[in-house]
Design a protein around this nucleic acid. Sequence first.
RNA 1: GGUUCCGUAGCUCAGCUGGAUAGAGCAACGCACUUCUAAUGCGUAGGCCACAGGUUCGAAUCCUGUCGGAAUCACCA
Length: 599
Amino acid sequence: MADFFYLCYQKIKIMNIDDKIGDIAFQSVNSLYGEVDRSLIQTQKTRKDFVGDLTLVVFPLLKASRKSPEITGAEIGEKIVSDSSEVESYNVVKGFLNLKMRAKFWVECFNDIQSDEAFGCGKETGKSVMIEYSSPNTNKPLHLGHIRNNLLGYSVAKILEANGNKVTKVNLVNDRGIHICKSMIAWIKFGNGETPVGKYYVAFDKAYKTEIKTLMDEGQSEDDAKRNAPIFLEAQDMLRKWEAKDSEVYSLWETMNGWVYDGFDVTYKTMGVNFDKIYYESKTYLLGKELVNKGLEMGVFHKREDGSVWINLESDGLDEKLLLRADGTSVYMTQDLGTAYERQSEFHFDKMTYVVGNEQNYHFQVLKLILKKLGCQWADNIYHLSYGMVELPEGKMKSREGTVVDADDLMEEMVTTARSMSKELGKLEGLSQVEADDVCTMIGLGALKYFILKVDPKKNMMFDPKESIDFNGNTGPFIQYTHARIRSLLRKAEELKIGYLRVPISTSCLLADKEIEIIQMLNNYEATVAVAGENMSPAMIANYCYDLAKLFNQYYHEFPMMKEENVQERNKRITISLEVASIIKRGMLLLGIGVPERM
RNA sequence: GGUUCCGUAGCUCAGCUGGAUAGAGCAACGCACUUCUAAUGCGUAGGCCACAGGUUCGAAUCCUGUCGGAAUCACCA
């Protein structure tokens, strides 16, 4: 992982408050104790139980000072206050030097945020990043697990973009292979002309199991039975025919695919995700075969007597891996090698990220290893963004037990709930039907997206339908509400004919503690986006947005805006509020969540 | 058995490169709307950060081991 950041994020110099105060402290410490390493200057936000805004941790400096923590802290504090006009006062608690900054310092920090147009959008890194996500399977409808994949993929793409990378979003449609043939066989046998596809893979499995049992009852071993079941042989035969482009098989395949593609498009549109390029396995699998030949020539792979091709990875602590079946047909790995190779040739990406569930950790470990063995140095630039499963309170989703949560159904249900909730609260009064629909869609989907994205991707997560429908507390609607609330201030200002101008805050303004906290937090946005990019974790953005919204709500509650008679004070409050709304909007956008003007 | 990931409040989750007394939400109880949106805010209660060692001035965080849980190790994808 570390090498990845190095490649894609050649540390953009972010001038945040910690750096500013760090530099001030650095100079004072240097003049006190001589040259010390800059990394020993560690600053952090002062905990709320202590007096001060920022804290310098003095422990690392004890070697240089050769004095006790308390004395060292006091010495440095004294020096900083006399050196810097920005620092108002200091106090030392144990090994912590708390610094109180002048209001002017914070006002300037805030005004810097406003004047910096590139703020939060990063600077161009010149790096090209490809991200593959979604990768649907054409014989299964999209469900909750796919939702997590799509939301993660889209959001990570946004975040990487915000960090200044050129991002290409791609989708690889898994439209061929033995599993597709299984569905086709099942449809021919049991379909009766129906068009929905999803259930036939299950139907095949059921029939397959029955046949295996029959064969085992006749005395065959389980392995033999699995290989010899007639329906399985038919599927294998169909795969061979498909790869041979048998016209009958091919046209049935095209027909059945057509049924699902329309559905995918609708789901993607509702979810608000999109792609720059769509790959189809049916088009890429042949390329993999060429690589297999190359690997055989290089002696990296070996062919068994039955004609199947393998690679032995035991020396790397892994197993033997199949690359081509005995009958010459491709497996998953075959085409994934080919696709990766093609993408590198076409896009020359600096990094390629695959958003794929953690059940495929092993696959990607092997994929990278094989590419490396084939001499592709760029395999180091492949990163598997592995995410955990989504579980239901009653356990895992199992299609055979009907416990799968369908993506379309779930999204619709969320919007419906948002609508009835909004109506009940009287939030839709004065809105046209179209506006009301927009708001409800935004809220319903916002709740769902936030619920899923706020969790660290690599962790398994629990999806409790009851809880996810809650719109209070740490939820998407809470953040959306905060935004809407602030935006309504602007409307109110117009209504009251308050001549509000968005101007820098005057440096003569005093600041409340809450305002300093907000400014610190706003200033942290850029760093948060950077860290979220490094970790490919939308959860970090989500939690940031929540913390900011929560902080603002406290401020909002405590300080009246329009009621404030001092014009300078009023403008300061409104200006800060609007900046909060703006950052919330940007942050939520990185999650693929819209924020309404009113709700 | 091998590999990878996870174990923090009753539940769902934060806690970035090690820093002060571990934080939110939900659920429970109490308080605040004639005042800019109460989808809000405030308060009470709730913890051996799985366990044991180690490194350090300092560990939920890093290292080792143990115990739990998940995924994977297919001529499936």
